[in-house]
Simulated assay, not measured.
Amino acid sequence: MTETTARTLPIHRRRLLAFASALTLGMAHAAGVSDKEILLGTHLDLSGPTATGSAMLRNAMQMRIDEANANGIHGRKIKLVTEDNGSQPQMAVRAVQKMIRSDQVFAIVNSFGSGTNAATVKMATDAGVIVFGPWAASAVIQKVAGNSPLLFTTVQNYDSTTATGLGWAIKNWGVSRIGVIYQEGPLGDLMRTGVGMAMKQANLNIAAEAAYKVGDIDFSSQVAKMKAANVDLIFSGTVIRETVGVMSEVKKLNWTGVKVLTGIPGRSSVVTALGKDTVEGLYGIGGWKLHDPATTSDPSAKKFFTDYKARFGQDADENAANAYSSMGWFIDGLQAAGRDLSAEKFAKAMQGVTHEDFTTYTRLGWKNNHAMPELVSIDQAKGGKWVQIAPPTDGK
């Protein structure tokens, strides 16, 4: 076969030929794996609407990698290639194509965005690349990837966690007239499914629904619809800025007789920092432990926040902590897979690798390549911080 012919073959075919050749030579290595190095990739929003937060994800991942590299992984060091997806699926496609074809990464870890991951995950797994811990709606990403054995999802499912959290609220607050404000698209659809699950369990019907489009900044009509229906609980299927927007409208109406509960994407420390007094009293469904860098008493959390600030000159947020945690779980999988590393051996070894640290509510394992169990807490915004008012539960 000529060099020109080899370059024109599909990438998965070239990988198979390379693997067969390596076997013949008695030195089989996966793509992205050499005697001295394991090459990883990620794609983050470094130029779009969440660029500030994505920079923290990159920093935290690199910090965890550097810690592992101090001793090495079976004689190898990890190197991370970072590409910008700008929160745009087409940019993500180009980034992943580069990482697969040019860089030939072993795995893509902690890639950011539901749309960007949905556009790229099957391309990566079909090429034999591990995809670990994508920051995206896990159920959607698993479906798009055809439940690939090379995909491992760690973000809690928005439907099941919504059902658990809202179910707790119905039972413990005695609410019965429930309204839903949700984002149009996959994220909102998943949360509405979760709302439906909780309502069916409680034998209730939704009193009012109102959608909003990505990018909307005015939520007066949605909240007015909830008020007209005289709901006693608004479930806010919103992300950061939109959660603040909904609470702002509730406060403008001086509507003190309604509770507002937001799902996992809205229960963020950024919401309390951005919303301040506007979000005081807001309830949130939490999927991981939150720590105040200045006051945490957890030794592991304190070390992470101290080390991060010393290195990068700013306080890490919860997203940085979660990226650090996820990278740690991935590195444990590399250790378990052994020196003779391949995507298949990593995927098999990872099945037996569990994880627990300062971000998790309990020890996590894998069920159909998704992190389980999915425990959620109920928290409330008080004095600019999230305060846990109900311990983690899976609703069972």
Rank of each mutant, 00 (worst) to 15 (best):
T5G: 14
T8M: 14
I11A: 01
R13C: 03
L25Q: 10
L25H: 10
G26V: 12
D35L: 15
K36L: 10
H43V: 13
A55Y: 12
M56I: 10
I65L: 12
A68V: 01
G75Y: 13
T82D: 09
S87H: 08
R94S: 13
G115Y: 03
A118S: 10
K122H: 11
I130A: 04
F132R: 13
F132S: 12
F132P: 13
W135C: 05
N147M: 07
Y158M: 01
A163H: 04
G174R: 07
R177P: 01
I181K: 02
Q183L: 15
D189R: 15
L190Y: 02
L190M: 08
R192Y: 00
V195R: 03
M197A: 14
M197L: 15
M197R: 15
A198V: 08
K200E: 13
A202P: 09
L204T: 05
Y212N: 07
V214T: 14
V214I: 14
K227P: 03
T238E: 06
E242T: 07
E242P: 06
T243P: 10
V244T: 02
I264Q: 09
P265D: 01
R267D: 10
A273I: 00
G281Q: 08
G287A: 15
K289T: 09
P293Q: 07
S325F: 06
Q335V: 00
A336F: 10
Q351E: 00
R363A: 13
G365K: 03
E374Q: 14
L375A: 00
V376C: 14
S377R: 10
A381Q: 12
A381N: 13
G383S: 02
K385T: 13
V387A: 13
V387D: 12
I389E: 11
A390P: 11
K396G: 14
K396I: 12
